[in-house]
Write a protein that binds this DNA or RNA. Structure first.
Lengths: 231, 231
DNA sequence: GAATGTGAAAAGCTTCACAGCC
DNA sequence: GGCTGTGAAGCTTTTCACATTC
C-alpha cells in the first residue's frame, strides 16, 4: 500500500477490479494487461493504470499485471484480508434477503447479529443466529464488537436504529432506508437507495424520448456512474 | 426544464432532494431555504442552489423555494410525472424483496412482469402477476412495452438476461448482479453492488484503525458518495 | 435583513501521450 | 513489439463570495 492519498473515485472502483480479477483467475488467467482488464470491467485502461499506481501497484512494463498478486494487493488495501463483524437491523423482506446473501461471507463480512423491532420476528432462527429485539442493539453490538451496521429497516425507524448503532460504537453504516441519516462526521455512511437509482434511469429514459436539446455528453462509464447519452 | 446540460452529479442528487422535500411537505412546510434543505439532505447549501439553478429553478431571493413547486419541478425533470413499465428478472430472495417494495410504485415505477429461469418458481402468483420463464422475456417485454429492466439474478445468468432485455427493446437496466454487464453504449446501466459497498466501508474502517499517513481529506458528503475521514 | 443565482476560483478526476522498461 | 507508470493537459464538479432581488 502507499504513502499517499487515494482518491475516492479510485476506492469506489477497486471492488470492480476485485470482481473482474476473480472471474479471470477462475478461468486460469495468470497475467493481464490493463487493456484486457478494461474489457472485463468497463473501466478505461489508462484509468485502471492510474488507479493501480495509487496503490503502488506492481505491473511489469511490456507484460502486464499478475492476476493473483494484484488481487491480493487490492484486497489488502480494501481491508479484505480480515473478517469484519456486521450487524443487520431490519429483518423484513430486504433484510432477510441480505442475511441470506452468500456474497457477504465470501468477501469476509460476517453477519454476527440481526435485529428487528417487530415482536413477531424476534426469536426467529436464521442459520445459527436468532433475531433479537432492536432494544438489544447497544448491549449486543458492544459485546460482539461489531464494526459495520446495515440499516434495512423502514424509513421511520432508520434514524433511531442508526443512532443506536453509532452510540454503541459502530463507525460504518450501509443504509438502505430512503432517508438521509444525520450522524456525527466520523461515521462513514453509504446509502443504497433503490428508488433513487430508478429515478436516475427514468431521467435517462426521459431524455432519450424527448431530448429538448444537446444533453449530456459524457462517454461510457461504469459501476455507480452510469453511461450517458450522446447528444 | 432547461436548455442546457445538467451535470451527472446533479442528476444523482435530485432524488435526494425529492425525498427530503417530500418529508418536509408532509410536515406542512411550504417554503424552504437552501440552508434548511441542506440540513435535511446532507448536501451543502451552495451545491443545492447550483443544482437547482441547472433546472432553471425558481427560488425567490430573500425568501427561499416553494416546497411543492420545487418538488414538482424536480419530479418533472426526473421524468416522474408519468408511470414507467418495469420488468424484473430473478425472483430469488432479492428479486422477491424488490417485487414487494412499495417505494417503486409510490414513485411511479410499475413492475409489469416478473421472470425467472427456475421452473419451480414459474407460475407462482405475485399480486396480480405471475412469474414467467425467462424464455418469455422477448415476447412479453415487447408486448408490454417495457422500458426499464431490473436484473436480480445470479451473476451467471445476468449477462444473458440483460442481453435478452436489450434485444427486446429495454434501454435502461438496474443491475444487482455482481458482474460487469457488457452492453451497447446506448443502454444505460446502473449497478448496485452490495458487496462493493461493503468493501468501501471496509476500506474506511481499515484506514480508521491503521492510517499509514495523511489519508483521504474530503469533507462530508451524502448519498452514494460517502463521507471521508479527516487526516 | 434574508436568501437566491452565478461569475470566478479551486479542487478533483480523467484522459492523453510518451518515456522507460521488459 | 508491447505494456506500465506518470507528467501534463483537459474536463467536470464543488466551493466561494457577492451582486441582485424580495
Amino acid at each position: 500500500m502507499r504513502i499517499q492519498r487515494i482518491p475516492l473515485a479510485t476506492i469506489a472502483r477497486l471492488p470492480v477490479y476485485v470482481q473482474g480479477l476473480k472471474s479471470l483467475a477462475e478461468t486460469g488467467t495468470r497475467l493481464i494487461s490493463s487493456q484486457r482488464l478494461a474489457a472485463a470491467t468497463g473501466v478505461e485502461a489508462p484509468q485502471i493504470r492510474r488507479d493501480l499506481s495509487h496503490l503502488g501497484a506492481f505491473g511489469t512494463p511490456g507484460v502486464g499485471y499478475d492476476v493473483n498478486g494484484l488481487l491480493h494487493e487490492i484486497s489488502h488495501c480494501l481491508g479484505l484480508s480480515r473478517t469484519w463483524r456486521v450487524a443487520l437491523a431490519g429483518y423484513g423482506r430486504l433484510g432477510s434477503a441480505l442475511a441470506a446473501y452468500p456474497g457477504f461471507l465470501e468477501r469476509n463480512f460476517r453477519i454476527a447479529a440481526i435485529f428487528d423491532n417487530n415482536p413477531a420476528l424476534v426469536g426467529m432462527r436464521v442459520g445459527h443466529l436468532e433475531v433479537m429485539h432492536s432494544a438489544r442493539i447497544p448491549s449486543m453490538v458492544k459485546e460482539l464488537d461489531i464494526e459495520i451496521g446495515i440499516v434495512a429497516t423502514t424509513g421511520s425507524s432508520a434514524q433511531e436504529v442508526a443512532d443506536q448503532f453509532v452510540a454503541s460504537g459502530v463507525t460504518s453504516l450501509l443504509n438502505f432506508a430512503p432517508v438521509t441519516l444525520t450522524l456525527p462526521d466520523r461515521v462513514v455512511v453509504r446509502n443504497i437507495d433503490l428508488a433513487a437509482e430508478m429515478q436516475i434511469l427514468s431521467f435517462h429514459e426521459t431524455m432519450r424520448h424527448a431530448p429538448p436539446v444537446p444533453y449530456m455528453v459524457k462517454p461510457a462509464v461504469q459501476h455507480h456512474v452510469s453511461r450517458w447519452l450522446r447528444e
